[in-house]
């Protein structure tokens, strides 16, 4: 399949697909980070994660409309407000869901899976009733339009670069929160030994709620980023949920570095294969590759060495 292209063409193709893959990588990382916190740290399977992401996307859409209609001068910077709103909205919903549902199910992970799937159906239908079944798109501000031209063959879209920078920044913030703050230490203490963490005075119920809310909030930010590169519909979230779970499991559930590494591997291989054998087969091969690796290494790429 490589023979019909010359070496320079092949290089450019791989570079182009590589950059396209980087955008996919950024979305994967943003979605998987939230999931890695919720699944990796708390052991809760949140099947509604995609719907939390779409909530963020819809908030971004509403914010862009608000700014276009009422504050046209500030339209260039609406995206930053939108991200903040998206984070707050999804984190609040996340806290509500944790309070109303998840906290009763901590010891039954398979049941959280079914309950959150039910939640995702309800959210999907809510979006459909509120925003209509058609996909909506946001108007991207001028400074995010266009692309850099590096060589004759290679072009990088600016919104892609922006999403990538966003992913890096969010990853860094999550890293600081989880591994360099006293709150993160509490979270990890609760994960490793809940009764002992409670015994030394950590309010484990509050830590749980905040952790879940944070994971959902990051999904909201992912949704904001998602509007930059695609349009939003009620079921858009469901398309990503399996990939995201595989990213988290493949990376090793409790490892941030693993999540980033596996998001990179999956998105790059998918994007590079896509050019040669088409989108659907690329996805099949990538997912199959991941599933087979997981059969040999069920704990994922990176694992924390914790005595249980």
């Amino acid at each position: 399949m490589f023979s019909e292209y010359s070496a320079t063409e092949l290089g450019s193709i791989l570079a182009m697909q590589g950059f396209a893959g980087l955008i996919l990588f950024a979305v994967f990382v943003l979605m998987a980070l939230g999931l890695a916190i919720i699944f990796g740290q708390m052991g809760v399977i949140n099947m509604a994660h995609g719907e939390f992401m779409i909530l963020g996307a819809y908030v971004t859409y509403l914010t862009s409309n608000l700014f276009a209609n009422h504050f046209p001068d500030l339209f260039g910077s609406y995206f930053f407000f939108a991200m903040a709103f998206a984070f707050i909205a999804t984190a609040l919903l996340g806290a509500l869901v944790e309070w109303g549902m998840i906290r009763f199910l901590y010891h039954r992970p398979l049941d959280t899976l079914l309950a959150t799937w039910g939640l995702s159906l309800i959210l999907q239908q809510t979006y459909r009733s509120l925003f209509g079944a058609r996909e909506v798109g946001v108007v991207i501000p001028d400074w995010l339009m266009g692309s850099y031209r590096i060589t004759d063959f290679i072009e990088i879209p600016i919104n892609g670069i922006f999403v990538m920078i966003l992913a890096i920044v969010v990853t860094f913030i999550v890293y600081l929160l989880m591994f360099r703050s006293s709150w993160g230490r509490q979270v990890r203490a609760v994960v490793q030994n809940r009764p002992m963490a409670g015994a030394v005075g950590i309010n484990t119920a509050r830590v749980d709620r905040l952790t879940f809310a944070l994971g959902c909030g990051i999904a909201g930010v992912a949704g904001s980023a998602f509007t930059m590169i695609g349009s939003t519909g009620p079921t858009s979230g469901q398309l990503y949920i399996v990939d995201t779970f595989l990213v988290v499991v493949f990376g090793g559930a409790a490892s941030l570095l693993g999540t980033v590494a596996s998001a990179f591997t999956i998105s790059q291989s998918q994007s590079a294969l896509e050019f040669f054998i088409g989108g659907s087969m690329a996805k099949v091969l990538t997912l199959m590759f991941v599933v087979i690796i997981l059969m040999f290494r069920p704990q994922g790429l990176f694992t924390l060495k914790v005595r249980r």
Binding site: F245, M288, V291
Partner: peptide
């Protein structure tokens, strides 16, 4: 491998099968 991981992997297999 069991429990949650099994559920996720069988789900991925269902996804692969449909796309295929």
């Amino acid at each position: 491998v069991g429990g949650v991981y099994f559920a996720i992997i069988t789900q991925a297999i269902a996804a692969i099968m449909t796309i295929l």
